[in-house]
Amino acid sequence: MELLGYYNYWVFAVVLCLGLYTVITRNNLIKKLLGLSIFQSAVFLLYITMDKVDGGTAPIIQKGVSDPIFSNPLPQVLILTAIVVGVSTTALGLAIVVRIKESYGSIEEDDILARDSEL
């Protein structure tokens, strides 16, 4: 049971690395962006894991409840920001991919490199 308390951190590490692996190895630019969003989501899990307190509830103060235990609100605030950052990066990355497709006719990295060296 003691080790289960670390399970979240391991899943964070594994998912993070799966995302990173996708970004580095895949040729397809959209697949790279999918990997990037998995990679970023893993970090959300790290932050939200820290906020949990045994027996706690969401940090919303209710009148009349004596001695409540709240989970930590601060990591939640930070991750709200990080989620918005994630969607912004993805949107911008996709806009670049669309432009690449229009000017190169492909979204595979090796095709693009090959087409540039033709010149």
Partner: peptide, 29 residues
């Protein structure tokens, strides 16, 4: 993990909007 606000945001933005934008880009590529 008691992060209701984050769960709502992830569902709306991560699962919702991001998917729609990806679909838009897939249609163009």
């Amino acid at each position: 993990l008691d992060a209701a606000d984050v769960a709502l945001t992830e569902a709306a933005i991560g699962a919702g909007i991001t998917t729609v934008i990806f679909l838009g880009a897939l249609a163009l590529t």
